[in-house]
Design a protein around this nucleic acid. Structure first.
Length: 364
DNA sequence: GTCGGCATTTCGACCACAAGAGGAG
DNA sequence: CGCTCCTCTTGTGGTCGAAATGCCG
């Protein structure tokens, strides 16, 4: 499982789609998820480069490798030297992003000069963009956090004129704070340089990406900054919609529209069950991300009783928890995704319906 | 500390139908 | 043994409502 694309069986798989439980090459990822509006919503992320079967959660800056939770723990949890490695969360994405957009999403996994001083805890303890945004002034309530997020979006929209005259990549990779000065595509195993070649869709002029419906290339760094690089024509309404649509996720979600495609960003790796577990068991993400749940070697007898309790709760929870639903038949899921319904129930073909997943319209 | 009332969250049932499984010929 | 045909079973997602849970006076 893993190394070869589950769809074409030829190309090397680079992306993991949790919704489809599939490892895909970039070309198939785009083709498959361009099929309909629902498939575009699938949250994808880089594939773990170690086991090639699980979605990568973090990227180790030292080893320049993207790792899933298990491989991260295996590789960093047992060795004191390795555990000091600087790791950064990997964003997930949805829609059908172009090469430049993908490079925007994952650029932060690379080295940031300004982030070099950040400790591992600083990077990894902040699991969501919303939290990152709030590192300077922590909102006192959810409403306050939402308000700040919205303000960020609106500020991005206001700054779109700045980015109009610059190309995507040049704008994306040149921050006034030098955050992305060291960006080097060659460092990524994900060969984004060949992305468009794989698709057979050249992007000779990066500005093409901003034609038509426009695009919002938003930058989310692991050090808590949200930068607006390009947003020529993205409507505020679209951004606001994206915020409203992510009411279940405590993260800022920015929607960029290019034609019909939607690109959303999440500070945590989408529907990461691991992240959910951290919350469920009450153990801090920092603790659990820094050390495996079973604890580092010699951890027994740790002075922190709370930590021990948290680890025990986590282990207990993990034993009894129901793992996330796994779709066994993608074809059936695809059918269900487009099937018309009445009050959530499937209806006979041709019958009256009150919900059409494809058009989200009602027949009466 | 206990109880009642209210709000919120969780979870199972429901639906149609194509795909899958398995048996018969 | 392998193939085709047929019948039965399974699984898929959005919504509703009951049950469970949490909170407050």
């Amino acid at each position: 499982m893993g190394y070869v694309c589950d769809f074409c069986g030829e190309q090397r798989s680079m992306v993991y789609c949790r919704s489809d439980a599939a490892c895909l090459c970039l070309s198939c990822d785009r083709n498959v998820h361009a099929a309909n509006a629902l498939s575009k919503r699938h949250s994808r992320t880089l594939l773990c480069e170690r086991c090639s079967s699980q979605p990568a959660l973090v990227r180790c800056a030292e080893e320049k490798v993207s790792l899933c939770q298990n491989c991260d723990w295996t590789g960093h949890g047992t060795s004191t030297s390795a555990s000091a490695h600087k790791r950064q969360t990997i964003n997930c994405y949805s829609g059908c992003p172009s090469a430049s957009e993908l490079s925007s999403i994952w650029s932060f996994v690379l080295d940031f000069p300004s982030a070099s001083e950040s400790t591992y805890e600083q990077n990894m303890g902040l699991m969501s963009i919303a939290e990152n945004v709030a590192t300077e002034t922590w909102p006192s309530s959810k409403e306050e956090a939402d308000r700040q997020n919205l303000e960020s979006i609106l500020q991005m929209s206001d700054s779109r004129e700045v980015g109009k005259s610059s190309t995507c990549k040049s704008a994306t990779f040149s921050g006034d704070d030098g955050l992305y000065d060291d960006f080097n595509m060659d460092e990524m195993d994900l060969n984004l340089e060949n992305y468009d070649e794989l698709f057979g869709v050249g992007l000779n002029n990066p500005e093409e990406a901003f034609e038509g419906g426009g695009i919002a290339s938003l930058f989310v760094s692991s050090v808590g900054r949200v930068n607006a690089m390009q947003q020529p024509t993205c409507s505020n309404a679209a951004s606001a919609d994206s915020i409203m649509s992510t009411k279940t996720e405590p993260v800022i979600c920015v929607t960029a529209r290019q034609g019909h495609s939607t690109l959303s960003f999440s500070g945590i790796t989408g529907d990461s069950s691991a992240a959910a577990d951290y919350q469920d068991c009450g153990a801090s993400p920092m603790l659990l991300m820094g050390e495996p749940p079973w604890g580092p070697p010699g951890a027994e007898g740790s002075p922190s009783a709370n930590r021990t309790n948290a680890v025990m709760r986590y282990k207990e929870k993990k034993k009894t928890r129901q793992f996330e639903k796994r779709v066994r038949y993608a074809s059936r899921k695809a059918r269900a995704d487009v099937r018309k319904r009445v009050k959530g129930r499937f209806v006979k073909a041709g019958g009256h319906y009150d919900y059409d997943p494809l058009t989200e319209t009602r027949s009466y």
